[in-house]
Design a protein around this nucleic acid. Structure first.
Length: 271
DNA sequence: AAAAGCCCCTGGATGC
DNA sequence: TGCATCCAGGGGCTTT
């Protein structure tokens, strides 16, 4: 379920609690997307320094090496001093001196991968081509616009690809394009400067608002799994095929782009 | 180099 | 009730 805001809310929910903890044990089955890449027992005794985020990856820094964790399509994390017994869809568990971190992921598109450092091949393969972080100062408009200029593909696809800007998933891509008044099928290189400017702002706004909403519901971190943030935001277009546009009343359209659905208002979003 | 498809999975909703 | 079909927040990999 996680796009950038959900991943960030998840991170905020346990990063401070797990920092400085020492790893007591790690267990991982073979069900996730890739093998861990090291002997789980080798992680025993290492100290957790921090939890960062890059795109939709969580980076758990250890005093030696790091873990890259992805929630895939259906992953969620829990962290608590005591957790209920593990179920069939719990595929990764790390017991620490400050609590246990557990990954629950029915569809198993998620991953936990060990890397010696951010420059190690395992990390570079996953992080190397990622674009700008939309919520950081790194998200420079000139670079964003220049990135779009190089791409002939549909703007929605370019946003989703994550090599210009990261973290914009299927829901927020449709929402941001609505906010900016841009038809999702328009070639990225044909998005004018003024419209690119609007889109740049819209991406920041829609993601930041979602983080704020999700974050504000945060209380008991042990129960947080990132789902809280989603539908608190009323979608303007996502999942609203046939329903009236909240701005102009025109029925929302749904199309397929690269085997994913896209929603837009044919009136408010001009080609 | 970039774009388009394929595929990895399970579970819930829908339809007959 | 039972069973088939379709769809779902991602993204790496292979093929054009």
């Amino acid at each position: 379920m996680p796009e950038l805001p959900e991943v960030e809310v998840t991170r905020l929910s346990f990063a401070n609690h797990i920092a400085d903890a020492q790893v007591l044990s790690v267990q991982m089955g073979k069900a996730l997307r890739w093998p861990l890449g090291c002997d789980p027992d080798d992680l025993q005794g290492r100290r957790i320094l921090a939890v960062r985020r890059r795109g939709k990856y969580l980076l758990i820094d250890l005093d030696r090496g790091m873990l890259l964790l992805h929630l895939g399509m259906s992953g969620s994390l829990s962290f608590a001093s005591r957790l209920p017994p593990a179920g069939v869809h719990d595929h990764f568990e790390m017991v620490t001196t400050r609590g246990t971190l557990r990954l629950h992921d029915p569809r198993r598109f998620g991953a936990v991968v060990y890397a010696d450092s951010e420059n190690a091949p395992q990390a570079r393969k996953l992080l190397g081509k990622l674009g700008m972080e939309p919520l950081s100062d790194d998200f420079d408009f000139a670079r964003f616009h220049a990135g779009l200029k190089l791409r002939k593909a549909a703007i929605k696809q370019v946003l989703l690809a994550g090599d210009v800007v990261v973290g914009v998933g299927n829901i927020y891509a449709s929402e941001a394009l609505f906010m900016a008044g841009i038809r999702p099928t328009v070639s990225a290189m044909r998005v004018s400067r003024p419209r690119a400017l609007k889109l740049h702002a819209a991406i920041r706004e829609v993601l930041a608002r979602a983080v704020a909403k999700g974050g504000s519901t945060l209380r008991d971190f042990s129960s947080t799994n990132g789902e809280n943030g989603y539908f608190q935001l009323e979608a303007m277009v996502y999942g609203r095929e046939g329903e009236p546009c909240r701005v102009c009343g025109t029925p929302i359209k749904s199309i397929r782009q690269g085997q994913r659905s896209t929603f837009f208002c044919p009136q408010c979003q001009k080609p």
